[in-house]
């Protein structure tokens, strides 16, 4: 029977990360056996009610290891070599991307990142992942064990199931060599709701023509209690900070409504927002790709469309 190890992540609020809850759904679909979840640090609620058969705890990740994950990789690699799972599942995150890749090379195994689908038929693990910036999909068969994967945010839905797993501690007794040190963390100020958590995202792209229009987008975001996003083109042009970038190499968002203004809808951008419930496009080019992805659209000049849209939104919200 296929054994599956799920690597759980706790977010900065102490909750289980959304990508982990999604990964539980995927992991439970891969085997009829109960799965094991590994978590760094102590297992307290809500970890102890995860819908898994067993929780294994490893040492907490200390601040100097965040972003490098030398010790976390060492601990998880030791657990993998002692328990020999067939499949190791991570949610896609900074942590999953780094530890998953390092683990795969340390165990001379396969790593498939950012998968949107994973299946297991009689021990043959298949995954699907977007490639070429989302222009194409690739299906792979994984031909080495363990199969190590990260799952794209939003690819699976949390199923709301809970469990009462047994909890045990695992100590690797191996200290990673600490040659890289994190000396400080600089947080950049943010107004309002976090982009990844927002129910409404108002994003601007190259079509805005400069930095000033982002203040209008911010007004709309505020009216909707949402957050401002941007395409990579707008960030690289310096119109808005890179922390607002949505897309393959920026943030992945899945709001109820994603409003794309002056964004052409290149696949690299859509990779970060395609799991939104509804995409709304305002663009003056009727042929632009964004209208192939959007549910609602207005073909027109954002400078004329947006003020009346914002005013009507304000009336409706009043």
């Amino acid at each position: 029977m296929t054994s599956v190890l799920l690597v759980a992540e706790i977010d900065d609020q102490g909750a289980i990360s959304q990508t982990t809850l999604q990964a539980v759904t995927a992991a439970n679909g891969l085997t009829s056996a109960e799965i094991t979840a590994v978590v760094a640090g102590e297992a307290t609620e809500p970890v102890t009610s995860l819908a898994v058969g067993k929780i294994v705890t490893i040492s907490a990740i200390d601040d100097a290891d965040i972003g490098v994950y030398d010790q976390a990789t060492t601990d998880i690699a030791a657990l993998v070599s002692s328990t020999k799972p067939d499949i190791v599942v991570f949610g896609k995150s900074d942590f999953g991307s780094i530890v998953g890749a390092r683990l795969a090379f340390r165990s001379d195994s396969a790593f498939a990142s950012d998968c949107i689908e994973i299946s297991n038929a009689d021990g043959t693990v298949k995954i699907t992942r977007p490639v070429y910036g989302g222009s194409a999909l690739a299906e792979f068969e994984i031909s080495s064990t363990p199969a190590i994967v990260t799952l794209r945010a939003g690819a699976y839905e949390p199923d709301g199931e809970t469990g009462s797993p047994a909890v045990e501690a695992f100590a690797s007794n191996e200290r990673a060599s600490r040659t890289v040190s994190v000396t400080d963390t600089v947080s950049e100020a943010r107004d309002g709701v976090r982009l990844e958590d927002a129910n409404f995202v108002v994003s601007g792209g190259r079509g805005l023509g400069g930095p000033e229009p982002f203040s209008v987008l911010a007004d709309l975001a505020q009216a909707l209690d949402g957050a401002v996003g941007a395409s990579r083109a707008a960030c690289d042009a310096g119109w808005i900070d890179h922390s607002h970038q949505v897309g393959l190499t920026g943030k992945s968002v899945s709001p109820d409504v994603y409003i794309a203004i002056g964004i052409s809808g290149a696949s690299q951008h859509m990779a970060g927002c395609s799991s939104s419930r509804a995409i709304v496009a305002i663009n003056k080019d009727a042929d632009s790709n964004i209208f192939k992805e959007a549910r609602f659209g207005v073909v027109g000049d954002w400078e004329k469309v947006l003020p009346s849209f914002l005013a009507t939104v304000r009336e409706l919200k009043a």
Binding site: S109, F111, E141, S143, K304, V305
Partner: peptide, 30 residues
């Protein structure tokens, strides 16, 4: 290879956009 590529394809987009047309662009926004 550790990963064997079995299929590479361009996904079909079946989304149909609903374009909102007003009397002018401001009306479209409303």
């Amino acid at each position: 290879p550790r990963l064997e590529l079995k299929r590479l394809y361009v996904p079909e987009s079946n989304r149909q956009v609903e374009l909102i047309k007003g009397e002018d662009e401001a009306d479209s926004g409303k």
